[in-house]
Amino acid sequence: MMRITAEAVSVEIGGKPLLDGVDLEVRPGELTGLIGPNGAGKTTLLRVLGALRPPGSGRVLYDGKTIARRERPALARRLAYLAQGGEAHWPLRVERLVALGRLPHQGPLGRASAEDQSAVERALQRSGVEHLRARTLATLSGGERMQVLLARALAVEAEALLADEPVAALDPHHQLRVMDLLRAEARAGKAVVVVLHDLSLAARFCDQLALLHRGRLLAQGRPESVLGDRELASAYGVRVLRGMERGEPFLLPWERLEAGERP
């Protein structure tokens, strides 16, 4: 069980602020969604949460403690990161690719243990890509590719999973499949953070949302409180249609707002 806390995190590149005083708490057992328009700082925040870049100011705590450089390898066993638009630079077969998720658990000589083997099998199975094990990423469809990369992240068997736009390029079937899987991971006790563009998926699947706009946290909390008309108008500049299906909400971006109409 891992709790990730961002405290007053700011990041600047060349005087341009990417993140500005962001406070966020990612709790175990919850699916946290990061939403916001393009360039709002979602990926930057996810990378800071994953200790892939240090915050310019502020700090990130893992179970209340900061991470020193020499502790980074140990954190790799506890926190998995799924990068955006992932690709493989070499045509490794899928099972070898998924097995890369076991690197943090292996010694310098990289011998795979029986535990590593079964973790890879579990990951292939949970992500539903067992039948693709002898293929290479380049021969798969976009949806299958994302499932394989997700299996790689699951193979770490970490306490936290950070996923950057895992459903962005997927068809509706695969989108639902990946979101179901992420929610199941959270229900199993993991802290899961996902960057999303689809507001309906965010409303329906996430326990907590953080709405970023120009590097600042515009709203944070339960989906129904974050996805208000006012918040969406000022972050995205859109008006949405809303509805309910069997007790679950959906939102449809309907029209752009002119500059004067944005709060």
């Binding site: 990378r47 994953g50 892939l52 980074r72 390898p73 140990a74 954190l75 790799a76 066993r77 926190l79 998995a80 990161y81 799924l82 990068a83 992932g86 690709e87 493989a88 630079h89 070499w90 490794l92 690719l97 890369l100 998720g101 690197l103 943090p104 990289g110 990369l149 790689r152 770490v156």
Partner: peptide, 14 residues
């Protein structure tokens, strides 16, 4: 091996 999946993923693998 880790770099096969890019620099961020490699860093996340420790």
């Amino acid at each position: 091996d880790a770099l096969t999946l890019g620099e961020d993923t490699a860093a996340s693998l420790g």
